[in-house]
Write a protein that binds this DNA or RNA. Structure first.
Ligand code: ZN
Ligand code: ZN
Ligand code: ZN
Ligand code: ZN
Lengths: 144, 144
DNA sequence: TTTCAAATGTTACTATATAACAGCACCATT
DNA sequence: AATGGTGCTGTTATATAGTAACATTTGAAA
């Protein structure tokens, strides 16, 4: 999906959810979209400062939190970063594959695998929360 | 396994790997063992300072990195913390369940689930590396 | 228009992690 | 014993990540 298409889809999704994709939040989303792969909060902050002159960390973190909550971005804990969700519109849990060689990101549907894991964990009385699975490895281009 | 037993097993494992469990590294390991569940680097640092008078972050981070590398601890990215491996000695891929309420940790065997995930990723040309699977949720005691 | 809640601005701070270099302990070779 | 290398630890400084708390603005409902 191209950037404009993603923004449009984001608008629809926020409207559906009854939350507001404000100008600031949209600007942050656009800044994230402008990068390939994983983006860091302070990178977005720097970009935002370039566009608006001044901005503080909470401004960016609030917007990023909102976008994650709205299902438009995913947080990648292992890398302290964020990625654009490649399945906007479908309620899902992602299987996020990060190539350790080139940094590229690939997001698949993780629901089936997580169902299995939930069963296994439930047998121990543990309730797995809604979340993404982050795994590292080598993408096709880097396997050689 | 009790603490003394774990230290003994750690000694054996390091010897097998040809790496040295020095006094400092052992002390850090003992400090981690002294806690239940997830332990944070700066908590270990504070403990270490109480025992030795002075210590700086790199001292702790180096020891923790070593212990992770040696397979004695696992890093829990989502919580910026570390846990003791409950399968020392067996080469494994763990399914690590962390309770977000109480911090307790439960480590299961993840091989079956990871096999499924590997197949799914391989269909996209992605080769998932050897690793642990970290998931958060609520333990039996905290579900209520 | 008033009023309230949500969003944003602002300041200050806490928490997490690493770079870079200095000193030391140990072992192997000479 | 002296030499020199390697790996471990100490030390200082800094980089990076994230949040608390309160002030101000804004926009829609009453
Ligand atoms: Zn997604
Ligand atoms: Zn790659
Ligand atoms: Zn383990
Ligand atoms: Zn719990």
């Amino acid at each position: 999906m191209d950037k404009a298409g993603f923004i449009a889809a984001a608008d629809r999704q926020c409207q559906q959810q009854g939350v507001k994709l404000t100008a600031l939040r949209r600007q942050v989303l656009e800044l994230v979209l402008a990068h390939e792969g994983v983006v860091k909060a302070y990178q977005v902050l720097a970009d935002l400062q370039r566009e608006r002159g001044i901005a503080a960390p909470p401004t960016v973190y609030r917007a990023l939190d909102f976008l994650v909550e709205a299902g438009l971005l995913h947080k990648v804990d292992a890398l302290n970063g964020y990625i654009v969700c490649s399945h906007v519109g479908c309620c899902h849990e992602g299987l996020i594959l990060v190539c350790t060689a080139c940094g590229s990101v690939n997001e698949l549907e993780a629901a089936p695998a997580l169902d299995t894991l939930r069963q296994q964990a439930a047998a121990q009385g543990f309730a797995i929360a809604q979340q993404n699975l982050l795994l590292t490895g080598l993408c096709q281009a880097c396997r050689v």
